[in-house]
């Protein structure tokens, strides 16, 4: 086993665009769940709406990439309104059921062959990121050092993805420290109490759903710009649950939590994959076949998440007094 290669691979994951994409979605979920108490189990749909919105904006409407990104964000706002207006009056647990259903409905709509002319159906969409690549200001070559060595387009993707993460984190930190954020945290604790103090709770919940959704839409865009294609299969419920894992790992009502949680999650995911895979290859583990390794690592991650919720419900950065996973 090549331990150096394993660690290099794992360290590279720390700042991969995929990690950035998940972190963005988790920051959005922190706005929903951590700060406002909305049990959104359909975060994959917001990411998908952003990704499809941008791709369709470029391919179908011929928009420039920057405008298409704004278009994708606008799509997420509309999705939040459509989802939120009928459902935000529901209690937290019902909202969880409705959001998970809404996410599946959106995924199936993208999958159906009826809209394949626009959405690409089951094959999805590709070839929408030429302009994005052309915008790359870095000349050809290799940049960085050690595990963080990237070709010019890899570097460009990372800079864009992580800039989005930093901007989203600063934005959320800023608004949550304002009186507006204080109302959201009040709603998380008891919405009737906040209502009795003269706040329009429904409007605040809708605003929170929109803001968290738009941040997740940016995550979806980073996700597909990195892969160079949008496929309906990416946005299943497992996408949502990985976002929840990232959020709970770091701490739901924190800003730094989703970021460090995301980095740690992908570090562990890669490490377990490589180490178990390596042990299978050299014959130390002889009861697993190589294709089973991918499943086993999720099994280990699942156990880790259970242990986390039981023993450290506030996450790594959470203040146990302020926020726990208690729905």
């Amino acid at each position: 086993m090549d331990w150096l290669a394993i660690f290099n691979l794992a360290l590279g994951e720390l700042i991969s665009p995929l990690t950035a994409a998940y972190i963005l979605c988790a920051i959005g979920l922190a706005v929903h769940f951590g700060f406002t108490g909305l049990m959104n189990f359909g975060q994959a749909a917001f990411a998908a709406v952003g990704a499809y919105g941008m791709a369709i904006g470029i391919l179908t409407f011929g928009l420039p990439t920057a405008v298409a990104i704004l278009f994708g964000m606008a799509c997420a706002v509309i999705f939040a309104l459509v989802l939120g207006i009928p459902t935000l009056r529901l209690r937290a647990d019902y909202l969880a059921i409705v959001t998970i259903a809404a996410a599946e409905i959106f995924r199936y709509l993208m999958l159906t062959s009826g809209f394949a002319g626009v959405t690409g159906g089951s094959a999805g969409l590709s070839a929408f990121n030429e302009e994005f690549r052309a915008l790359n200001p870095f000349p050809d070559g290799e940049y960085g050092f050690g595990p963080f060595t990237f070709r010019e387009e890899e570097l460009w993707m990372r800079i864009v993805g992580w800039s989005a993460v930093v901007l989203a984190a600063l934005f959320v930190m800023f608004v949550m420290r304002s009186p507006w954020g204080r109302v959201l945290r009040g709603i998380r604790e008891d919405e009737d109490a906040v209502r009795s103090l003269g706040k329009n709770v429904f409007a605040y919940k809708l605003q929170a759903l929109i803001i968290g959704g738009v941040i997740a839409a940016l995550g979806g865009m980073v996700f597909v710009l990195n892969l160079s294609n949008v496929q309906p299969a990416s946005w299943g419920t497992n996408f949502t649950f990985m976002i929840w894992t990232v959020l709970l790992l770091g701490g739901a009502a924190t800003i730094l939590g989703p970021i460090v949680g995301g980095m740690l999650f992908f570090l562990l995911l890669t490490l377990t994959q490589s180490i178990i895979g390596g042990l299978v290859d050299v014959g130390v583990i002889n009861f697993l076949s190589p294709p089973q390794v991918g499943q086993v690592r999720f099994l280990i991650i699942g156990l880790a998440l259970m242990a986390l919720v039981i023993f450290r419900p506030q996450g790594i950065f959470g203040n146990k007094k302020e926020m726990q996973f208690n729905g």
């Binding site: 608004v175 009186p179 204080r182 109302v183 945290r185 009040g186 008891d190 109490a193 706040k199």
Partner: peptide, 26 residues
């Protein structure tokens, strides 16, 4: 509001705080 501080509970009681508007909160 259990997981807010006592002083934040109190501040929430005030009405007409312009910073409670999302756009103005910036």
């Amino acid at each position: 509001l259990s997981l807010l501080t006592v002083i934040d509970n109190m501040r929430l009681g005030a009405q007409d705080q312009p910073g409670e508007n999302f756009l103005r909160s910036f």
